[in-house]
Design a binder for these strands. Structure first.
Length: 880
RNA sequence: GGGAGUUUAGCUCAGCUGGGAGAGCGUCUGCCUUACAAGCAGGAUGUCACAGGUUCGAGCCCUGUAACUCCCACCA
């Protein structure tokens, strides 16, 4: 490929993407080694679930990270992108259990803990590489030598270190509290793992008799089956209706247990009946009421949500079956007053969708208040910044209202809690190392059977992956990391927890910037999901359109933090852009005789060369600025416009005549400009579209091995040519106006015409003669000082700086011409009126910046000059 | 009940610190012009949700309203 100037006619990414990726890997370009002469730039990947498959959300996330990493690497940073995967406790365990059930009809209990875990590890080995390979397909320049897994040795060590440290500081404790229990997964869940959905339920009004009396109270409940766990009925102390009831005893229906009536402020007089059944073991509020009044906690369900012995004759029934039967029985006994439809929020397990049961349970918790405050402060004082900033509000809201974090899970797949219980003395020991013997009495110990919440290990990811708690070279050099890139949906799960963990354990915030993106939705705006079947597989897109097209699509047309709709039409547009680049490069290569890549001397440059270089130079500055502000979409849009409009549609067309003048000095100069600007533009675009840019760069004259380790272009004030820009733009406007007129008059492109230019800027238009011939259908161009030699009856066009005449007498329709001129006159007069209005406004003159005022004056002059010419033309035409 | 976001061309969306409304797709007209029909040239289409306010000047800033979306929340 080195010398070949003949590249394929059509862009076909499958011809080079895999090959280039392999080369990059083999050359070790992705591998970062701490280098004291460079500044570090670090990103740790949000680790995808080991057993997962790459979806569009990942593709977006990885693309954004890769753009940043490649950009910084080219800027000379020691750029490290740490890849890895997450063991994803519940999700993975469910999948393996499911497979076990389907294939062998067994449960995890049939296998036992050790055998089951072996199966999960096998599964992990089988599928763990799938997602990694998928990341490679889209071009991710991760340092694969540093690939990590949340349950590898190092991460596990970090987990234990953190657990023990927090425990010793009193920030981890074990306690019986109301937690969210998933009866399907048979485990506790954290608050963040519960999704709430509006549910059409009922409000059952049930009579509780007052002991030794004919009186009764009516309570209203949405979960009647918890009645068996009632240990009181509460009323508001201010509620006149029930004042005399407080202190009396009620008889619990169906089971006949005696419970007291208590008064507690928690009760809202105006809601329901004003009487609330209190079930401390099954409701968080009731739990607190129970604490205040020293009530017994009666758990009425088993772990699988079947009723236990407290439910009397309903024992063994599923919670909903029990509900149905007891309602029937209550009705028979005349204790059911009424049933109202009632919609309320029901919590569901975020993994399996089962309605969670609030239940009292002994679990491990992290005390959050002391950890939350420093994490809030770190963002408030700017140590860590969110992009866009408004996501800080979400972050604050979570941390300010945080409750203790339930970290124990009754799962087998995960980090086992490092707490050991002595069978002899009963004491508990929390230890970083596995122990078999009790340090107090030398008795036999058994480890806590529970595992930790997956997010407990994810929270340590930015430093556990760099070697912490060891003081490694990597950790010293690369930590704290630079930027975290993730979706707004996991701020509460992950970002927040990394923040407080980083601050607590390393004394530093884990990252400087949190770059938040939105969700990828389908073309109709729906969330992509398996159940809807509307997911688009990123790999299919890569196969069909190439990774660059996918990346371009994901990086563009969307503001940071906003959701984006994904449609194949947009990918096609991206692919077309790649094809455009491909062909512009092909054109350049076809016309290349030079073997070096640098700019010609300024003296040799044509006006169009200077124009392009000047435009390119501004592009460099703006793209750099945008990238530094995380405005990736704006940066890439500017690259698109520059390449398509300036480079392809104008510059290439402008220099064609020169290039065809084979062997001339001017042709050579154009070749240098094409080569230099194209190859440097490829560098600017490389972070976004790594493959095509590398492929093209390799074909162009270059020094160095690869574009990805070349230097990112820098703005150079010496390359600004404002005069040339103005001149070319004047010519471009004239060409545009001629094309417009010809199209309007249906002049076929093949029909050439003479062009007469009356202008005060003869020099500029002299420079443009060949351009008018090439691009405006002119076969003969005359530049005149005034209108004296202009034939009557010529088509007339007024543009900025000149008046153009096309002697196409036979095509001129006098009435139409007059109509058009009148329209132009009206438009110009409108503009002049607007400008004059502004300029006659004292406030504008005195308060607007000088530059703006000057610009308006300039516009005014320009329009007046044009209007004058239009008036003359109108006069002329009338006299014909 | 709190909080956030969105509202700009037929569709999907840009519009950075306020200074004459943009892109892609679609659509219409004409072109196979020796890089590209995955293309070229030209055209049409907008009370920037609504109402106030600040300002010389508002798509952009402030207040309020409406619609849609999302997140959070222990009214049983």
């Amino acid at each position: 490929m080195e010398d070949s100037k003949n590249i394929a006619k059509t862009y076909d990414p499958s011809q080079f993407e895999d090959r280039l990726y392999q080369t990059w890997c083999e050359k070790g370009y992705f591998h970062a080694v701490p280098d004291p002469d460079k500044k570090p730039y670090t990103i740790v990947i949000p680790p995808p679930n080991v057993t997962g498959q790459l979806h569009m959300g990942h593709a977006l996330d990885e693309t954004l990270q890769d753009i940043l990493i490649r950009y910084k690497r080219m800027q000379g940073y020691c750029a490290l992108w740490v890849p890895g995967t997450d063991h994803a406790g519940i999700a993975t365990q469910i999948k393996v259990e499911e497979e076990l059930r389907v294939k062998e009809g067994k449960t995890r209990y049939d296998l036992g803990r050790d055998k089951f875990l072996e199966r999960v590890w096998e599964w992990k080995k089988l599928y763990g590489n799938r997602i990694i390979n998928q990341l490679k397909k889209i071009g991710s320049s991760c340092d694969w030598d540093r690939e990590r897994f949340t349950m590898d040795e190092g991460c596990s060590k970090a987990v234990r270190e953190v657990f023990v440290n927090l425990y010793n500081k009193g920030l981890i404790y074990q306690g019986s509290r109301i937690i969210n229990w998933c009866p399907h997964c048979i485990t506790a869940l954290s608050d963040a793992e519960v999704e709430h959905a509006e549910h059409e339920g009922h409000f059952w009004h049930i009579k509780y008799r007052v002991e030794n009396s004919d009186e009764f109270v009516v309570i209203a409940t949405t979960r009647p089956e918890t009645l068996f766990g009632d240990t009181a009925v509460a009323v508001n102390p201010e509620d006149e209706r029930y004042k005399n009831l407080v202190g009396k005893t009620l008889i619990l229906p169906l089971v006949g247990r005696r419970i007291p009536v208590i008064a507690d402020e928690y009760v809202d007089k105006d809601f329901g009946t004003g009487c609330v059944k209190i079930t401390p073991a099954h409701d968080p509020n009731d739990f607190e009421v129970g604490q205040r009044h020293n009530l017994e906690q009666i758990k009425v369900m088993n772990d699988d949500a079947t009723m236990n012995a407290y439910a009397g004759k309903y024992e063994g029934l599923d919670r909903y079956e029990c509900r149905k039967r007891m309602i029937e029985d209550l009705e028979k006994e005349g204790l059911l007053v009424k049933v109202e439809p009632h919609s309320h929020n029901v919590g569901q397990c975020y993994r399996c969708g089962t309605t969670v049961e609030p239940i009292i349970s002994k679990q491990w918790f992290v005390k959050m208040k002391p950890l939350a405050q420093p994490a809030i402060d770190a963002v408030k004082n700017g140590e860590t910044e969110f992009v866009p900033t408004h996501f800080e509000k979400v972050y604050f809201h979570w941390l300010e209202n945080i409750r203790d974090w339930c970290i124990s899970r009754q799962l087998w797949w995960g980090h086992r809690i490092p707490a050991f219980y002595c069978e002899d003395c009963g004491k508990m020991t929390v230890s970083k190392e596995d122990i078999t013997v009790c340090p107090h009495c030398s008795g036999k110990v058994t480890q806590d059977p529970d595992t930790l919440d997956t997010w407990f290990s994810s929270a340590l990811w930015p430093f556990s992956t760099l070697g912490w708690p060891e003081k490694t070279e990597d950790y010293d050099y690369f930590y704290p990391t630079s930027t975290l890139v993730t979706g707004y949906d996991i701020i509460p799960f992950w970002v927040m927890r990394m923040m407080f963990s980083g601050i607590e354990h390393t004394g530093q915030v884990p990252f400087k910037h949190v770059f938040i993106h939105g969700l990828v939705r389908d073309a109709k705006g729906r969330k992509m999901s398996k159940s809807l079947g509307n997911g688009i597989d990123p790999l299919e897109i890569v196969d069909k359109y190439g990774a660059d097209a996918l990346r371009f699509t994901l990086a563009t047309g969307n503001a940071p933090g906003n959701d984006m709709r994904f449609s194949t039409e947009r990918v096609e547009a991206s692919r077309n852009f790649a094809n455009k680049i491909w062909n512009a490069s092909r054109f350049t290569l076809m016309n290349l005789d030079i073997t070096e890549n640098h700019l010609p001397k300024a003296d040799d440059l044509g006006i169009e060369d200077k124009w392009l270089i000047s435009k390119y130079n501004r592009l460099v500055r703006e793209v750099t600025e945008n990238l530094d502000k995380f405005e990736l979409g704006i940066a890439v849009a500017k690259l698109y416009d520059f390449i398509w409009d300036n480079f392809c549609d104008w510059y290439i067309e402008l220099v064609k005549p020169r290039l065809y003048d084979k062997g001339s000095k001017t042709a050579e100069c154009a070749q240098y400009v094409l080569t230099y600007v194209l190859s440097n533009t490829m560098k600017l675009l490389h972070p976004f579209m790594p493959f095509i840019t590398e492929e093209i760069w390799q074909h162009l004259p270059h020094t160095g091995e690869s574009i990805m380790i070349s230097k990112f272009p820098e703005y150079d004030p010496a390359l600004d040519f404002p005069e040339a820009e103005k001149a070319i733009e004047m010519i471009m406007a004239a060409i545009g106006a001629i094309r417009n007129r010809r199209a309007e008059m249906n002049v076929p492109p093949s029909k050439k015409a003479s062009l007469l230019i009356v202008t005060d800027y003869p020099q500029i238009f002299e420079n443009g003669v060949s351009f008018f011939k090439k691009l405006a259908g002119a076969d003969d161009v005359s530049i005149l000082p005034d209108r004296s030699k202009v034939p009557a009856n010529a088509v007339n066009i007024v543009v900025n700086g000149a008046e153009l005449f096309l002697p196409l007498a036979e095509l001129v329709d006098k009435d139409k011409e007059l109509e058009r001129l009148m329209k132009e006159k009206k438009e110009l007069e409108g503009e002049i009126k607007r400008v004059e209005g502004k300029l006659s406004n004292q406030g504008f003159i005195s308060k607007a910046p000088e530059k703006v005022v000057a610009e308006e004056r300039e516009k005014g002059e320009k329009y007046r000059a044009m209007l004058e010419k239009v008036l003359v033309s109108i006069n002329d035409i009338k006299q014909l």
